[in-house]
């Protein structure tokens, strides 16, 4: 190695190191570039906006008359790949005397759910949707077993 190339190696190395330091130095002095947010403060400040399609948990919307859209057809239960949905049905006597299958409890095992959205895809009556809630941590695992249909709720009229 000649002396000239030795010296030029030293200088080009130092230059490459300094250009890296320039970048970190830039970010050190420019605090506006900081991208991290403070959780949970960002929820209060409104910086944490979850998109409407966010898959937090399966929910069953009920309207003001405590009516839902679930007919108890069990499509969601069949489509669930890991068995986190269990639907218990009952026979309900209709006003015209006929017996009809209806939903008794819609059991949702949040601890097993992978939020794959297949149940929502499968539902023929749009009875279930994905909710935005994402803070699911609890101290007792049993609390993760949820019943989605509210007590005394009814099937919305006209939903088949």
């Amino acid at each position: 190695m000649g002396l000239g190339s030795y010296i030029s190696t030293v200088f080009s190395s130092v230059k490459s190191l300094l250009s890296g330091m320039k970048l970190t130095g830039y970010y050190f002095t420019h605090h506006k570039e900081i991208v991290t947010q403070q959780y949970p403060e960002n929820k209060r400040e409104g910086a944490l906006i979850l998109p409407e399609r966010f898959r937090g948990e399966v929910t069953m919307p009920h309207d003001e008359n405590n009516e839902h859209r679930c007919t108890g057809c069990q499509s969601c239960e069949l489509s669930c790949p890991n068995g986190s949905i269990k639907i218990i049905t009952k026979q309900e006597v209709q006003p015209d005397g006929k017996k009809k299958k209806a939903i008794d409890t819609w059991v949702y095992h949040l601890d097993m759910c992978t939020f794959c959205n297949l149940c929502i895809e499968a539902c023929p009556t749009q009875a279930i949707v994905m909710g935005q809630e994402f803070e699911h941590s609890v101290f007792d695992k049993k609390k993760l077993k949820k019943i989605l249909n509210k007590p005394d709720s009814k099937l919305k009229a006209g939903v088949e």
């Binding site: 130095g25 050190f28 900081i34 991208v35």
Partner: peptide, 13 residues
Amino acid sequence: KVAAFMQIRLGPN
């Protein structure tokens, strides 16, 4: 703090 500001984060706060 130096590390945090160079790494575009806030550091201990």
